[in-house]
């Protein structure tokens, strides 16, 4: 079979270099997504079963198949700065149906972790982290609920960190280990 030759030497070189990537591409990104997600995004053949299963797709421009392609091509900026990244409900429908046995949901989670490293994160996520730091709960108790609990014969506060606050310093140590509180406070400063 004849191989087509181009008289553009630059193009010839690119076409023969299997490591060639477009300038927007960061091969490190592909690798990082693989490491964090532990799923084989590179096996994606773009069938679209994932998007077809996705409850977020019919009501937004979010397309999980597109993010799969971005993972494979290493399109880091395009993936991490797209607000649609945060519209995945993590329902895992795509994961259960992917004919290539990939977990697209975990690819999204990996990208979100990488976005966080660049300070891209919805504020409400950070607020949940702050609440857990101070109370141990993402959704803490309140007075109406305390009264209802007592009526039911339960303790006013559940037997969690709410009743045993001596466990909270341990939780704070774990969060401090990852500098989570510090980062949340910095990003939410002034709110």
């Amino acid at each position: 079979m004849a191989v087509k030759k181009y008289d553009n030497p630059d193009l010839e070189k690119k076409l023969h270099d299997t490591r060639y990537h477009s300038i927007d591409t960061n091969p490190e990104f592909t690798k990082k997504v693989l490491d964090i997600s532990r799923t084989i995004a590179n096996m994606c053949y773009q069938c679209g079963t994932c998007t077809g299963s996705c409850p977020s797709a019919p009501r937004s421009s979010y397309r999980i198949r597109l993010f799969m392609r971005r993972a494979v091509l290493g399109l880091e900026d395009e993936a991490l700065t797209d607000p649609d990244l945060w519209l995945c409900t993590t329902c895992y429908s795509c994961t259960d149906r992917c004919p290539r046995d990939i977990a697209p949901t975990d690819v999204i989670m990996a990208m979100r972790n990488l976005a966080f490293k660049r300070d891209i994160i919805p504020r409400n996520f950070l607020k949940t982290a702050q609440l857990i730091y101070s109370t141990g709960h993402g959704v803490p108790n309140n007075d109406v609920n305390r009264a209802a609990r007592v009526k039911l014969g339960l303790t006013a506060d559940p037997p969690t960190t709410h009743s045993y606050p001596e466990f909270i310093p341990g939780i704070q140590k774990i969060l401090n280990y990852f500098e989570l509180k510090q980062n949340a406070d910095r990003m939410l400063e002034g709110e």
């Binding site: 945060w86 989670m109 979100r112 972790n113 996520f125 982290a129 857990i132 141990g136 709960h137």
Partner: peptide
């Protein structure tokens, strides 16, 4: 404590 919330915490780190 909170489990912790898989959506928020899993997304952060």
């Amino acid at each position: 404590s909170c489990c912790p919330a898989p959506g928020a915490f899993g997304s952060i780190d």
